[in-house]
Design a protein around this nucleic acid. Structure first.
Lengths: 223, 223
DNA sequence: CTCTATTTTATCAAAATTTATCAAAAAATG
DNA sequence: CATTTTTTGATAAATTTTGATAAAATAGAG
């Protein structure tokens, strides 16, 4: 099996969830096969890129036919690691923590919420997404008794790094980081950032850009 | 006047918010100047890339000195369009809508929340992030009376496209989309997606990847 | 005021990514 | 059953992005 023989670039990996999403939709609509050309038009990519992307994991397509939707979907599901069930905890039971805890999609794909932690006495003991919020003091013992794969960090910037230090020292290897900052983590720990502010700012950039390029005479003078 | 003469790639633009963040932190720590080498080490980039990135907007640095922190920060702030005040509305007053509405950082950078809309009778009339939730039926009139730059979409997948159609037909040009789907929008409308599921899945990919690659070969790579 | 150490800017080379092309395989057609 | 059409996978070409370095400019020391 050559599937994991050569390293696939992160550029390609970042597109995989989108493939997975579209294939899931196609399957839900009882569509059995799809060609790279059709999928490209659907997703707004080039057919060539799709073939190249998919082929970096193995030959899932068939010449003259295309790709079998459910087969390809299953393959990508496995490639994304979704054939495995992940245990996760959420740290920070604020609005963002709530939002994630109640995100149905995560559970459906096998990401199981095992605990929610906070330091605010008003939050501790309340139920968030079917689990009872515990105090951070209980985190270490909890992690030692439950194998936790992923920590979803929804805490303020000021404490993000400190909590990341804690959870990694307890052995957690994956962090989905909603705190608006970069984290320094030990080798072997994977961090994926969701930086809402950064996203908003690229939007404002594009809005401004559009305004300027559509104005005839920009009078931008600063010195 | 070469500043807006050649188009800057999205790859570079996506790094700007991060520069802005780091420069803000430096300024807060009363650091007046910084060289590309220092900033590179701080941010985990190469000095060369930083120089190239910054120079694509203009000569903010000074040879033999480096970059003046507050000057560069202001420049990037303007480049990101943050010299302008944006009016925004949130559609969907669920947990995610709440989370965004209470995000202090947005207001601080000049993104002003003007309204929150939903269809759930239980939510209408409640206060979210200092504004009262209105029914979607009031959206059109509200938008016509208040110039709204950005719509933050926090609604379920099923209604995302339909609501995007509405808001764009009312003249809104920018959408920050938290609904887990791609949106089709008229030309001139800018959409920035924040897809939490996609982020989680790239994390699970990397977790699995790491597991597999360390089973036989305990060599690790860093970026 | 001159000299040296820094550090940007501009340029070029290298690496990575995307797109295009095409032979080979499979399916569809008649 | 031969022929045409479709479509992949592989390779090549084009484009974009990154990294390295020489040239130019500045600060600071003496």
């Amino acid at each position: 099996m050559h599937r994991f023989s050569k390293k696939v670039s992160m550029t390609v990996v970042k597109r995989l969830p989108k493939y997975y999403q579209y294939l899931t939709d196609l399957q839900l609509n009882d569509i059995e096969k799809i060609s790279s050309r059709e999928l490209a038009s659907l997703m707004g990519l080039t057919a060539s890129q799709i073939r190249q992307d998919l082929n970096s994991f193995g030959g899932y397509g068939q010449q003259g036919y295309g790709y079998n939707v459910s087969e390809l979907r299953n393959a990508i599901k496995d490639i994304l690691g979704l054939d495995y069930e992940y245990s996760c905890i959420i740290i920070g039971a604020g609005n963002m923590g709530h939002a994630i805890a109640n995100y149905e999609r995560f559970r459906r794909e096998g990401i199981i919420l095992k605990g929610v932690f906070d330091v605010d006495p008003l939050r501790i003991g309340t139920v968030v997404g079917s689990v009872v919020v515990k105090h951070m003091d209980e985190l270490e013992e909890f992690v030692s008794q439950n194998e936790i794969d992923v920590c979803i960090l929804c805490v303020p910037r000021e404490v993000g790094q400190q909590i990341a230090n804690q959870v990694t020292s307890f052995g957690i290897q994956g962090i989905l980081n909603f705190s608006p900052m970069d984290l320094e983590v030990p080798k072997g720990v994977e961090v994926e950032n969701v930086n809402i502010t950064d996203s908003l700012f690229t939007l404002t950039y594009r809005l401004k850009d559009y305004k300027i390029s559509t104005e005839d005479n920009p009078e931008t003078s600063d010195d």
